[in-house]
C-alpha cells in the first residue's frame, strides 16, 4: 500500500501541517504560563525551607519528573473526571485541550521549580548580604539583586525546557488533539505517504526550535551582559599575521597604509 517517495508531497504537506501550528503553540504557551506559576509555587517552600510544604513539593516534583508524560496525559484525562465525579463535578464536556494543557503545565512546573531553585541558590550569598548592608529589605534584595542574576543563570536551562516541551506536545495527538503531529498522522492515513508526512513534520519542528533557540540566545546575551565579554572576534590584524605567508604581510601593511594616506 505504501507509496513511493515523492518530494512534492513534502511541499504540499508543510502548509497543511502548519495550519495546526497554532494548536501546538497554544499548548506550549498555555502550559508554560501554568508551569511557571505552579513551578514558582513549588519552588518557594524549598527555597525558604518551610518544613512540611517542602516535603510535599519534593514529592510533587519527583512524581512529574519521574513518570512518562504520556502516562501523565492518560492519568489526568481518564482519571481526573472519575475523581471529580465523586465531588459531583462533571468534566465530560470539558475540551480535551484543557486536559492537555493542564498535564503539560504540571509536567513543566516540576522542571521549572527545579530551575528556579537551582538558579536562585546559585546566586552568591554575598550579594544578599551586600544588599542588606546598604539597607535594603528582603523584598528589595530579592527583586533588585537576586532575581535579575538568577534569571540570567536560568535562561539556558529554560531554553532546554522550552524545546523539550515543544517536542513533547507531539504526544497530545494520542488523545485526539489535532495539533501538528495529529495532523501529520491524519495525512498519512489519507495519502499513505508516511515518509513525506513525517519528514515535513520534522522540518517544521526543527524550524520552530531553531527560531526559539535564537531568541533565547539573544535573551541570554542580554541578561548576561554584565559578565566579562567573550573574546572579541579576531581582528584582521591577528588573522593576517597568523595565516598569510611571510613577506605578504608587509605588502598588505604597506598597501593599506597607502590607502589611508
Amino acid at each position: 500500500m505504501e507509496q513511493e517517495f515523492d518530494f512534492t508531497y513534502v511541499l504540499q504537506f508543510i502548509p497543511k501541517i502548519l495550519s495546526t501550528l497554532g494548536t501546538t503553540l497554544t499548548i506550549v504557551g498555555g502550559s508554560l504560563v501554568l508551569g511557571l506559576a505552579a513551578g514558582l509555587l513549588a519552588a518557594l517552600p524549598r527555597l525558604y525551607k518551610i518544613p512540611f510544604l517542602r516535603r510535599v513539593s519534593q514529592v510533587y516534583v519527583s512524581f512529574f519528573r519521574g513518570t512518562p508524560i504520556l502516562i501523565q496525559l492518560f492519568l489526568l484525562y481518564y482519571g481526573l473526571p472519575e475523581l471529580l465525579k465523586q465531588a459531583d463535578i462533571d468534566l465530560s464536556k470539558t475540551p480535551v485541550l484543557v486536559f492537555v494543557i493542564l498535564t503539560y503545565g504540571l509536567h513543566v512546573s516540576a522542571y521549572v521549580s527545579e530551575m528556579i531553585r537551582a538558579s536562585v541558590e546559585s546566586v552568591d550569598r554575598g550579594q544578599v548580604e551586600a544588599a542588606y548592608s546598604v539597607g535594603m529589605n528582603g523584598v528589595q534584595a530579592f527583586t533588585r539583586i537576586v532575581l535579575p542574576q538568577a534569571l540570567a543563570i536560568a535562561v539556558p536551562v529554560f531554553a532546554n525546557l522550552l524545546l523539550a516541551l515543544l517536542k513533547d506536545t507531539s504526544l497530545a495527538f494520542t488523545l485526539g488533539v489535532m495539533e501538528m503531529t495529529g495532523k501529520a498522522s491524519s495525512l498519512t492515513t489519507l495519502t499513505q505517504h508516511f515518509v513525506e508526512a513525517y519528514l515535513s513534520l520534522a522540518l517544521i519542528y526543527l524550524a520552530v526550535c531553531l527560531v526559539l533557540e535564537r531568541l533565547l540566545r539573544v535573551l541570554e546575551r542580554r541578561l548576561l551582559r554584565h559578565e566579562a565579554r567573550p573574546v572579541p572576534a579576531k581582528s584582521f590584524e591577528s588573522w593576517r599575521t597568523k595565516w598569510l605567508p611571510f613577506g605578504l604581510p608587509q605588502a598588505f601593511k604597506l598597501r593599506s597604509k597607502g590607502g589611508d594616506a
Partner: peptide, 16 residues
C-alpha cells in the same frame, strides 16, 4: 543598617 555600611572581604559588588 541605615547607620552602618560594610566593605566585604570578597567585595560583593552587585554583579549585574
Amino acid at each position: 543598617r541605615l547607620r552602618t555600611a560594610m566593605v566585604f572581604q570578597q567585595y560583593n559588588l552587585f554583579r549585574h
